[in-house]
Amino acid sequence: MSIVPISYYLVLSAVLFGLGIVAFVVKRNIITIFMAIELMLNAVNLAFVAFARAHNQLDGLVFVFFVIVVAAAESAVGLAIIITVYQNRQTLNLERINLLKF
């Protein structure tokens, strides 16, 4: 049984990361922008796992584990902030939340 080359995974990871950045820039809804960050984290995780396999070491997998844990913590706090922002401003559009913008 042949194995898929690691480079395929790396290219996929790069493409997903790029799409994540595009989503981050293009979208206007805070929640969707937050999702774009998660997409980028996922892309990085894929690269971590691929590299771990390539070098036959487990450190990459442990890192993925940490990234997932940090993402969970981040999304809990982030979503709480989003709810608070919505209660104060009644909108989720990032461009309408511009009190501090010069």
């Binding site: 480079s7 990361f17 790029g18 595009v22 590299f51 390539a54």
Partner: peptide, 27 residues
């Protein structure tokens, strides 16, 4: 964004580490 992802892919595959493993089957 498209440019960035292509550049990123290119860089990952052509870098020092990338060259070593790019076409390897990995473990």
């Amino acid at each position: 964004g498209i440019f960035l992802s292509l550049a990123l892919a290119y860089w990952m595959l052509e870098s020092f580490i990338g060259k070593q493993i790019a076409n390897g089957l990995g473990g």
